[in-house]
Design a protein around this nucleic acid. Structure first.
Length: 595
RNA sequence: GGGGGAAUAGCUCAGUUGGUUAGAGCAGCGGAAUCAUAAUCCGCGGGUCGGGGGUUCGAAUCCCUUUUCCCCUACCA
């Protein structure tokens, strides 16, 4: 049995996260993890995340606000966590690169090993330095004349006018965007990750799936295209910076004074250090190695498309370059990188400062988090950018979740409540042809097939299809209930009617129990509610077990006499007025921000 | 400037290695039913698969070209 080590991109502790982030890297991962824990056993799955808390952008914003770096990232760390909590996203551990006690040492060791083994080299170059702020200036924070076209307000990395790529040192009369001063060129030593060398050392072979020790799940088109192009022309990347905030370089390294690891270098190591922290908290400090160094671990990185290069090229190279330096064993390599595209909001990008966002407090005060989860998954940006739209959210909530799923539970369980004293009736011991026809009805076979397909879609990162099949299963059960007409059969005008009615109800209740487990990864709270409604019926199977995975099999006959619980509504409807109010609110906040 | 992804019905999307009259949901129209959150179920209409060219007996699918949108290009999923 392989074990699954699942990560979601470390959110950058420099601002709020929104539905777009959730749709891309967090919710799919949470559903995947919940499913795996049910299907493979919780001991075989670990879900790791945390905030990315270093980098120049954080230092600048904190300084602007006059807050210490520590306090600044702490605030965003808890802010970010609270949105995950509201969405019901449950990590096994959620740490942060500046708060994890293992992070700095692990990052430095990564760096030192790469240096020792010749995968990192040093080079001294001239960079713009602001004497006023006593700091080196990142290219993006410089403005000056474009050496190509002369445009006066070119940035240090790119000219917005002619689009050409600029070597910051050639920028004419540069000005610091941070303090407005004129910087001077000053020599500084930096260390570079030798990606071409690591490419030869095994990255290529792993990426192409030729490394039998490190198998890969087939790449998604967006990942494959991007990475193939990158591998054709790989360059060394600098992995150090002149900054006061971050992971300091190892001691005793010449020229390392005042320098830290580049945030993109230390961030992915956060996955590992967070696992170390988790293991230590469990009282088994070495247990992290079981996850990161055992060959049968499947390492899965959920990310957004902007992060592909780092998770398919840079981080795997860093892992590869560690060779046998950690207790003599190599690290596992990523097994799958299900990168998603971007999730927008009604035609535009989510953007807090321009007022185009959803207010999380207000959203979760009014709407069912499970409905939000289901809708976001159903419209997830798997192959192309997609969006959250209020009218579509209403359709998912009302027409699918309330009418198809919730109402199915209602109509079946209320029928049982009114006609059978809330107990599962006893089915005929020797089924007649008519009863066998009920039991083998095409609609039930359709439901079996739909529910059985969900596992495969989830394992293949096809979350949209998984949600569609969950609904398809419920549609089939509605069809079955309609076709069997138990409300007519119960009047028993013909011989055998009563037995068919009993059989129909027994089947429906058994399938509701199955549904409560199939819906659990998507809508965990609703699954629990449904199981409460099922009362003693729910006890026929363990809530946390997926059961038969890929076999389309009808649930076993329920013992007679099991008592169901109180019937509730699983999903409440959203009124048209609410939707138009939300749209008006969104437009008002956008135009307010525009002024 | 370089690289990548996407474009299919009014809307949101499926279409596996090229193979019968291109499918589903929503919206629209009609019907059945009344157990249920007026919830369900059945039926119907609707598309020169972004444009142009090519390969092929056969292309939404492969190749070339072009248009539009998005992303990456060294610190926003």
């Amino acid at each position: 049995m392989p074990r699954y080590l699942v990560t979601s991109a470390l959110p950058y502790a420099n601002g709020p996260i929104h539905f777009g982030h959730v749709a891309g890297a967090y919710l799919p991962a949470d559903v995947y993890v919940r499913y795996l824990k049910m299907a493979k056993g919780p001991e075989n799955v670990l879900y790791v995340c945390g905030t990315d808390e270093h980098g120049v952008a954080i230092t600048l914003k904190a300084e602007q606000e006059g807050v210490g770096y520590r306090a600044y990232v702490d605030r965003w760390h808890s802010e970010i966590r609270s949105l995950f909590d509201r969405f019901g996203i449950e990590f096994d551990t959620f740490s942060g690169t500046s708060r994890c006690a293992f992070h700095a040492d692990a990052s430095r060791k990564f760096f030192s090993v790469l240096l020792e083994r010749g995968f990192v080299f040093a080079k001294t170059e001239k960079q713009w330095f602001s004497e006023q702020s006593a700091r080196f200036l990142p290219d993006r924070y410089l403005q000056g004349g474009c050496p190509q076209c002369g445009f006066a307000k070119a940035r240090g990395d790119e000219c917005p006018d002619c689009g050409s790529w600029i070597d910051a040192r050639e920028l004419q009369n540069p000005v610091s965007l941070i303090d407005g001063s004129s910087p001077v060129l000053k020599a500084t030593k930096h260390w570079f990750l030798d990606l071409p060398k690591l490419q030869q050392a095994g990255l290529d072979s792993w990426y192409r799936g030729n490394d039998e020790n490190h198998p890969v799940h087939p790449w998604k088109p967006n990942v494959q295209g991007h990475v193939q192009a990158m591998l054709r022309d790989l360059h060394a990347r600098p992995i150090t910076r002149d900054l006061p905030w971050g992971v300091k370089l190892p001691e005793g390294l010449e020229g390392a004074e005042g320098k830290v690891l580049y945030v993109w270098f230390d961030a992915p190591i956060g996955y590992i250090s967070a696992t170390m922290e988790w293991a230590a908290a469990q009282g088994t400090p070495d247990a992290w190695m079981d996850w990161w160094q055992k060959e049968d671990t499947r390492l899965v990185h959920f990310i957004g498309k902007d992060n592909i290069a780092f998770h398919v090229v840079v981080f795997p190279s860093m892992l590869l370059g560690q060779e046998d330096a950690w207790q003599g064993k190599p690290f596992v390599m990523p097994w799958a990188v299900p990168a998603n595209e971007f999730y927008n909001l009604q035609g535009r990008k989510f953007n807090t400062s321009s007022g185009w966002y959803l207010d999380n407090d207000s959203f979760f005060a009014q709407y069912n988090p499970d409905a939000a989860r289901f809708h976001v998954l159903m419209s997830a940006p798997e192959t192309a950018d997609s969006e959250f739209s209020w009218p579509e959210f209403q359709v998912t909530n009302n027409n699918l979740l309330a009418d198809k799923v919730g109402n199915l539970a209602s109509r079946v369980l209320k029928f049982l409540d009114k006609r059978f004293g809330s107990c599962v009736p006893e089915v005929a011991k020797e089924p007649t042809a008519a009863i066998l026809a009920v039991r083998g009805h095409q609609a039930l076979q359709d439901a079996d097939a739909a529910f059985a397909a969900i596992a495969g879609f989830l394992e293949n990162f096809e979350f949209r299809k998984a949600t569609q099949h969950l609904i398809a299963g419920c549609t089939a059960l509605n069809q079955f209930f309609d076709a069997m007409e138990p409300w007519i059969k119960i009047k028993g005008s013909q011989a055998g009617d009563w037995e068919c009615c009993v059989e129909t109800l027994e089947r429906c209740v058994a399938y509701l129990e199955l549904l409560s487990r199939r819906i659990a990864p998507f809508c965990p709270t609703t699954a629990g509610k449904l199981r409460n409604m099922l009362g003693a019926v729910a006890e026929t199977h363990v809530a946390s077990a997926w059961g038969e995975e890929n076999v389309a099999q009808a649930p076993a006959t329920l013992p007679a006499g099991l008592r169901i619980g109180n019937v509730e509504m699983l999903f409440l409807k959203i009124e048209d007025e609410q939707i138009s109010a939300e749209i008006a609110k969104l437009e008002a906040s956008a135009s307010a921000a525009a002024e």
